[in-house]
């Protein structure tokens, strides 16, 4: 990856990690149906690694729980993410990682929408367009170098 070369943003702000979701009595009850909620989606993406730092997207505040919206009944998910700096060259890659993680982790019925928080990136529009285009996402994952970086972001940290 980046190794010992200079980082774009070497000393970023760090945000606190939210703890593991508490297991409630309702979760343990066999009969009840737990709907997929915002927190569950957030838990899927908060531990994704940043491509540059040994930090999670949550710690860099790239993803926040309030910017995750899910409608279980309508099968839609919408996630906004905020790059750490407006010229961050990794924005597309981060968006792609989030999208891939959600595609792998959610039932097929869901329509997944991932985009940049409005007004936080220089080329916001272009990135959003790329992420929304199914074929371009599929093509990106055919590229083994790109797939490698995405998989690294999605792997559990050693």
């Amino acid at each position: 990856m980046v190794g010992s070369s200079q980082l774009e943003n070497a000393n970023p702000l760090i945000y606190q990690r939210s703890g593991e979701r508490q297991v409630t009595a309702q979760d343990e009850d066999e009969q009840l149906h737990d709907r997929i909620d915002d927190r569950e989606i957030f838990d899927l993406i908060r531990s994704i690694n940043d491509p540059e730092h040994p930090l999670s997207l949550e710690e860099l505040n790239v993803v926040e729980e309030i910017r995750v919206k899910v409608e279980d009944k309508e099968s839609t998910v919408s996630v906004e993410f905020t790059p750490t700096i407006p010229h961050c060259s990794m924005a597309t890659l981060i968006g792609l990682s989030i999208k891939v993680k959600l595609l792998r982790s959610l039932p097929e019925r869901f329509k997944v929408d991932v985009h940049i928080t409005p007004g936080t990136h220089a080329s916001e529009h272009a990135v959003n367009k790329q992420l929304a285009d199914k074929e371009r996402v599929a093509a990106a994952l055919e590229n083994s170098h790109l797939l490698e970086v995405v998989n690294q972001c999605l792997s559990a940290r050693s």
């Binding site: 979760d27 149906h33 997929i36 569950e40 838990d43 899927l44 083994s144 998989n151 690294q152 999605l154």
Partner: peptide
């Protein structure tokens, strides 16, 4: 229908995606 089951399913499935794939 249970969240705790979905959590395990996500972990298992994502890990199966990673096997034999570059970068894992």
């Amino acid at each position: 229908k249970k969240r705790l089951v979905r959590k395990e399913a996500v972990e298992a499935r994502c890990q199966w995606f990673l096997i034999g794939s570059p970068g894992s």
